[in-house]
Design a binder for these strands. Structure first.
Lengths: 364, 364
DNA sequence: CTGAAAGCGCTTACAG
DNA sequence: CTGAAAGCGCTTACAG
């Protein structure tokens, strides 16, 4: 109708909110300025029709989001970021960390939050962390990966709110934000089971609590279909790098005198999947023809490998945003007795070549 | 200093925000009105000292919370509340439901959100729910307890956002808010283990997925101390009422020809604990002298039983608030691809008489 | 780094 | 149920 509008495009992340106001929304929705106000505040009975039109416009223009954010910024000026240096070097795990940290810093930049980074001595200890956070006048601490119980215990006793990102606190002393690892592990496994695979190898490593949840999900999927978990097989690599996967797979084949009936491999990290793919290729095994491969992380671009890698995508951007929001909420309700929160964000399976069914069983 | 002030009392829930404004905060903090604005928006470099004073005042007066809420109200006008009628009658489970639903309706009232209740035919079916929500012009659906996979599947396909409260969706199709059952089950068990108990009976029933997580936590606690889970014992009652607990316990004693070395009972609901207490009393067993008893829910007043019941308190009010907030966030980010959220809220152990150590082992 | 004053955006009686 | 106009609260140059 109105030719001069380039209509609603929130575009996930790139919100162009130069200065959207209530008047823009009114114009967009074709109503009066006060009507918008009434809709937004529920201060007058508005017809369903107009109400939805206004909300639609407000959401589309990013006004709703803008208004939402306004309240929060207040209390969070500086965050103290604590990351084990050990998680930074190395291959793709690195890519995951890197993407997560970039998302975190982007979100902070957008909101004008300063980030102070904890310079780690040898390993992360509570005292220097708390001292550092204090010195940096930080309003909150974002702790990534390291979820040793003693560390969490000590940090929780400090006066600065802590959010643990990508780690687990089974004793719930600090707020936590993690991908729904267990649920996603199950999802990936079920994807393979639905294709008819029964003997699936779960290739993983034991370094991190969160990774073990993917194994839990692997087992869940079998249990859910009433299948014996003994049909599946769990193989622990010595680490999370492609070479570790190769070694583990090679040894497995050696010990069993072959692939031992396995028709699919579900890896707990893309890195491992990359290693598995190359080892399989070397063994002359066709993927996905002979063996299907599914990864986990979904950070690397899809055509990074041949065949392209079917993988579970972890919502790293959303995790970063959620961590900040959780910190904000905690700051907002300080001294009130709001319970500790654990937030899990769902992952989605990105279907590409490596995990495809040998023949189209499900559809056709 | 200022004699006319009745200082900050956010008082969890009963926020008396008649009309707190930026000027109230300024007066409270003893600064200019624009300084407050600058602190809240980060629009000028403010000294750490003044900044903290202002934030303190803003939080204390409930201004921060008020401002936070403002943004949200917009999109959520009506919620469609779906509760299995079967969960409403009966004893204490009832008390739990009742408290949860009251918290939900109080929160909605405070925010001017209308609640439309789904009138259930025989059992909850997706189609009539979606139709009813549409007819009620609801902006979102709050589904309580019922987490059958087929129901969630169908509801997730509707166009109205759904939040599942006190239920589980392992496949993560809808946003979920639950108490941290597993973590709390572990907490309660660890509390008993720390007192020296080794042979603990977990008295539960199999009706609900969320309740089974408390059993998981029971096992976690043993595993965490490197103790064999065989030391513990799991007893499934036929239902969640006190009588079911009594029956189950009686049968257990009969079969084993005694209490079989059990020195503590961890019940997955206060209701069961109440039944256990009365059965133990009838058997002439002293609580906590001979056997310690710990419940789960923490809704009933502490002196409801003799001895008073040590129990895990589930944060029902916070759960209700969180469910509404989750719905709001979903509405705010509609059409953007924000991942599905699962939120767990931590529970705390309320120590009273029934779970006390026979002799002070831990302290002294 | 802080505040007095001008100005703008949103809210709020009120009319239709 | 909707909008024009008055008014209030918060923000924003700007001075010190």
């Amino acid at each position: 109708m109105n030719p001069s509008r380039d209509p609603e495009r929130p575009k996930a992340g790139v919100v162009p909110h130069r200065k959207v106001g209530i008047r823009d929304v009114a114009k967009e929705a074709g109503v009066g300025i006060s009507t918008v106000s009434h809709v937004l505040n529920g201060t007058a009975p508005i017809s369903q029709d107009v109400r939805l039109r206004v909300l639609e416009a407000a959401r589309g223009l990013g006004y709703l989001a803008k208004r939402q954010q306004k309240g929060s910024i207040a209390c969070l000026k500086t965050i103290y970021l604590v990351v084990p240096a050990a998680s930074l070097p190395h291959h793709d795990m690195n890519l995951v960390s890197w993407t997560l940290l970039r998302a975190l810093s982007r979100e902070c930049e957008e909101r004008g939050i300063r980030i102070a980074i904890h310079a780690e001595a040898v390993s992360l200890e509570a005292e220097p962390i708390l001292a550092g956070a204090s010195a940096a006048a930080a309003d909150g601490i974002v702790l990534v990966y390291d979820d040793r119980s003693s560390l969490l215990e000590a940090l929780a006793k400090g006066r600065i709110p802590v959010v643990l990102l990508n780690g687990e606190d089974p004793e719930m002393r600090v707020d936590t934000v993690v991908p729904a690892n267990r649920s996603a592990g199950r999802l990936a496994t079920e994807y393979l089971l639905a294709q008819g695979h029964r003997r699936i190898l779960h290739l993983t490593w034991q370094g991190r609590s969160t990774i073990m949840r993917r194994l839990d999900g692997f087992r869940d999927a079998y249990a859910d279909r009433g299948l014996s978990i003994d049909l599946g097989e769990v193989l622990h690599a010595a680490g999370y790098e492609p070479d570790h996967a190769r070694q583990a797979l090679r040894q497995f084949v050696q010990e069993r005198g072959g692939i031992d009936g396995v028709t699919a491999i579900f890896c707990s990290a893309d890195n491992l999947a990359i290693g598995a793919l190359s080892e399989l290729q070397q063994m002359g095994v066709a993927v996905p023809g002979d063996i299907a491969v599914v990864g986990f992380d979904g950070v690397a671009p899809g055509d990074f490998t041949t065949p392209s890698l079917t993988s579970v995508r972890v919502p790293l951007e959303a995790l970063a945003v959620s961590a900040i929001q959780t910190l904000e909420r905690r700051l907002l309700s300080l001294r009130s007795d709001h319970p500790v929160e654990r937030i899990e964000l769902g992952c989605v399976l990105v279907e590409r070549e490596s995990g495809a069914a040998p023949q189209p069983v499900t559809r056709r």
